[in-house]
Nucleic acid binder design. Structure first.
Lengths: 188, 188
DNA sequence: CGGTTCCTTTGACTTAAGTCACAAAGTCAT
DNA sequence: ATGACTTTGTGACTTAAGTCAAAGGAACCG
């Protein structure tokens, strides 16, 4: 994947950044390929990059009493980051690839620096963050439902998750035990 | 509260915006006073304002099967908004004053318009949204704890809530029944 | 091919938290 | 104060979901 490809990919996602600004954004991107299990972000570490998934999938989780608690999954075309990346804090979560993946990696410092002079880049950043915050609001809503409805809701809203995520990870994302998920799935 | 007071208040919150930019921010602010029960944001409506609490408190909630589910509380010095305000979507939540309050109201369109030419304003917006997103992440973490630990956590992290919020609202915020909260509080 | 290992399902039992019903204590207006 | 209304606390019971334990299935590897 070369610079032109990256440009095309970015444009596919976002038409807001254009012309010279887009060239400058592309200049702080690089294309990388990693294998299943690779960690994009690790708990406790500061992370200067955000990622766009070209191909593959990732999960985010933290450990609670030794157990993984998944907070989200991400697929093609999605932005992968944690808010700590934007805020410059150490991350509370680990982000790990569920499949071999092709990614565009963006250096946040460079990206933020660009936003100082490029209003369109500043707007793009805000938009991504707002989108992420709305996503977090939807997760809170999901967790407020009784477990069976959580499963039904995700089945409805993001059926692709079922195809690509292990039931163990899905159960942890839905805030229930594997056994409960299994029973809900086999229920009439 | 006049323009100078507003300026002082904003500067107390955020030193990032300075000089001319601050004057321009103040120009899209107005000071209002409202009584307990007033709704700043209503479910299903688009809302063009965000608020800073000078004095008083507010809660945000949505209705689920006729019951209020509180998502957060806000006090002096905090920014009150929902992400739908930034995104221009109808709100999923209602924000209501818990006490008579003094507020600075900011017109989001004007504010966003300012950010096009004022990088410091754009950064302020991003920072508020990032802060809100981190706050939402903390709420998700809270909800993942067993109920007793939720109470202990909030007691530790935000003891002022206990003084100013009814136990009914607090229970709903903590995702438990009033009875459970009452039992947890009276436990040894 | 057989043997690990991991993932998922199922069954029996336990426990955390909810519901319902009622009592006690506060708040408020008259 | 007095009565109406709201908020909080307690007890008895129910239910949802978790835990523990065991057993099929897939996938993986020599």
């Amino acid at each position: 994947m070369n610079q032109t490809d990256i440009q095309d990919f970015l444009q596919g996602l976002q038409s807001q950044v254009n012309g010279d600004a887009l060239d400058e954004v592309v200049a702080c991107c690089s294309f990388i390929q990693l294998t299943r299990g690779a960690k994009l972000i690790e708990t406790g570490k500061r992370h200067p990059f955000l990622y766009l998934i070209v191909q593959g999938s990732a999960k985010s989780y933290y450990l609670s009493e030794g157990k993984e608690v998944c907070t989200w999954f991400a697929f093609e075309g999605e932005v992968v980051s944690t808010m700590s990346t934007f805020a410059g804090h150490p991350s509370n979560e680990t982000v790990e690839l569920l499949e071999d993946a092709a990614l565009i990696r963006i250096h946040v410092k460079d990206f933020k620096a660009l936003s100082v002079n490029r209003a369109s880049v500043a707007r793009l950043i805000t938009e991504w963050v707002v989108e992420h915050a709305i996503f977090l609001e939807s997760l809170l809503y999901l967790q407020s439902l009784p477990v069976k409805m959580r499963y039904e809701h995700i089945l409805e809203a993001r059926p692709e998750i079922l195809q690509r995520v292990s039931l163990t990870d899905l159960a942890s994302f839905l805030g229930m035990s594997r056994e409960s998920l299994s029973r809900i799935r086999s229920a009439p």
